[in-house]
């Protein structure tokens, strides 16, 4: 019994250690956020012969997903784990609601306006214009330049007070 107990404790400690390692893997496009902050990691399963990490794409065409998978593998390999497989899962669908408040603050400091509203807000088709605060000067006097920006997850906005353009992390 004690042996089983030890094995479980060891297993759990190992599991926590894996999550700690994943917390150091940053998003290649937004290096202030880790893959855990982003809510990309959906599951970690340890098997006798290796580890399976399930990830979910932010956008179906996000070109960073393959790199994220490779970086997870190499981070775990560096810490001595082997036989790591990356599994892509689509359900439940990734949403910006999974980005924590702490992570949103990190985004703001980095100069990207974080997703402002919960996706429960369903003003999808020609919805009411959103108020997005300028990450630089905090002004609400801003306007959208384009729904699409430098990466799939961002839109391009500009501040009408400080005149700086900025990225807005789209709310999906």
């Amino acid at each position: 019994m004690e042996k089983v107990h030890q094995s479980i404790t060891h297993h759990l400690a190992d599991h926590a250690a894996i999550w700690e390692i994943l917390r150091e893997v940053v998003d290649p496009e937004i290096p202030v956020l880790t893959v855990v902050d982003m809510g990309i990691i959906r599951d970690v399963v340890q098997r006798e012969n290796g580890i399976e990490v399930s990830i979910t794409p932010t956008y179906t065409g996000c070109p960073a997903m393959e790199m994220i998978g490779e970086e997870i593998k190499s981070a775990l390999t560096r810490k001595g784990y082997s036989n790591i497989t990356i599994k892509t899962v689509l359900a439940p669908t990734w949403t910006t609601d999974w980005i924590s408040d702490e992570a949103k603050e990190k985004l703001r400091q980095y100069g990207i306006a974080p997703p402002e509203h919960s996706t429960a807000d369903k003003n999808s088709l020609l919805g009411k214009p959103k108020i997005v605060k300028c990450p630089q000067c905090k002004s609400e006097h801003t306007e959208m330049i384009s729904h699409f920006g430098s990466t799939a997850c961002k839109a391009l906005w500009k501040c009408l007070d400080c005149k700086e353009p900025f990225d807005y992390f789209k709310c999906i």
């Binding site: 794409p57 956008y59 179906t60 899962v89 689509l90 359900a91 439940p92 669908t93 990734w94 949403t95 999808s124 088709l125 020609l126 919805g127 729904h147 699409f148 789209k170 999906i172």
Partner: peptide
Amino acid sequence: DETLAGFAAKALKEVTYHLRHSSE
């Protein structure tokens, strides 16, 4: 079909943006 359902829920979010963009 779980794969189709998961795919559609994902794609719908993207397509909603496409729709808003093209409507505008």
